[in-house]
Simulated scan of single mutants.
Amino acid sequence: MSIALRVGNREETIAALMSGETDLAVMGRPPVAPDVVSEPIGPNPHLLVVPPGHRLLEGAVTADRLGAETFLLRERGSGTRILTERFLDESLGGRPYDSVELGTNETIRQGVMAGLGVAILSGNTVLGEVATGRLAVARAPGLPIVRQWFVVHLAGRPVVPAAATLARFVVENRARVLPDASTQMG
C-alpha cells in the first residue's frame, strides 16, 4: 500500500479524481461534474490579508481603496482565484485592478509579507502568520466569504481501504484536523 499527498488547484484536483489518480480529495467546493460524494469538514473563511501596519487596516475599506491595491492571485484554475476575481468584480463594479499571479498560497503569503500586494486567502492558510503578527486581516464589506472544506471522492467508484480510513478519521476529528479559522481571526 502506498499513500501520497498532493497539493493542487481546483482544476488539477478534479482532473485527478476523474482519472482515478486520486482516490480522495480535500477541497473547498465539490464539483458539479463529475458526480462526487462529499462530506463537509469545516468552515473555509476567505479573508483579505495585508502586511502589518497596512493602510487598509485603518478606516473604512471602500471600493476606491480596494481598487488602488495590487492583488496577489493564485494561478488560473485555482478556486481561490475564482473567488477573488468574483469578489473584486462585484466590489469594484467591473473596474480594472492591478494583479500579480503567483503559483502557491505560500508564495502569496510571502509576497504579502514583503509588501508586494494584498490577497484574499483561506483563513486556514494564514492562521500562523496572523497569530504571530507577520500578516494582518483587513475588514472589508463582503468579507469574510465563508465556504466549507469537504472530503470528496468519486461517486460509483470504490474507495480503497486506506482512503476510506483517512476520510473517516478526518470527518470524525474535523475540529482537531481543521480548526475554525473564522473564530481565530479576531
Rank of each mutant, 00 (worst) to 15 (best):
E90H: 12
E21K: 13
E39Y: 12
T70I: 05
F87K: 06
T22S: 15
P43I: 08
A15D: 09
T22K: 12
D23A: 06
L72P: 03
H54D: 13
A68C: 03
V32G: 10
T13L: 00
A63N: 04
G20T: 01
G28A: 09
T70R: 13
G79A: 12
E85F: 02
V49N: 01
R86A: 12
T22I: 11
A33F: 13
H46M: 15
L73V: 00
A16L: 08
H54E: 04
E85A: 02
H46S: 13
I82Y: 15
P40T: 07
L48N: 04
S91R: 12
P40Q: 05
L83K: 06
P34M: 00
S19G: 11
F71D: 10
L83M: 12
A33G: 10
E85I: 01
N44V: 08
S19K: 11
V37F: 13
T84H: 01
D23M: 07
G77R: 11
A60K: 15
L17H: 07
A60N: 12
H54S: 01
V49M: 01
V36G: 03
S38D: 10
E69F: 00
I82L: 14
H54W: 05
E39S: 13
E58P: 02
R74G: 07
E85T: 04
V26T: 08
M27P: 06
A63C: 07
L57M: 12
D64A: 12
P51M: 08
P30E: 05
L57C: 08
E85C: 01
E11S: 14
A16R: 14
R86W: 09
R81D: 04
D89P: 08
S19R: 15
R65N: 02
P52A: 12
A60V: 10
L66S: 08
P52H: 10
V49T: 03
P34Y: 00
M18K: 15
L57Y: 08
A33C: 10
L88V: 00
R10V: 02
E75A: 15
G42F: 00
E58S: 12
T13V: 03
L47I: 14
E58H: 14
L57G: 10
L66Y: 08
T22D: 15
S38A: 15
G42T: 01
S78Q: 04
L66N: 06
G77H: 06
A33K: 14
E12P: 02
L56S: 05
D23R: 07
R74K: 11
G59C: 02
A60L: 12
A33M: 13
D35Y: 13
S78D: 11
S19Q: 11
R74C: 02
E90W: 09
R29S: 14
P30M: 04
D89W: 13
D89R: 15
H46R: 14
L47M: 14
G28Q: 09
L57K: 08
P52V: 07
L83C: 03
A68E: 14
G20D: 02
V36I: 02
E69I: 00
P34S: 00
V36L: 06
G28P: 04
T70G: 07
L56P: 03
L56Q: 08
S91E: 06
L24E: 05
P45N: 08
L88K: 00
G20N: 01
E85V: 06
P45V: 09
E12Y: 07
G67D: 09
D89L: 11
I14E: 10
L88G: 00
P52L: 04
S91M: 07
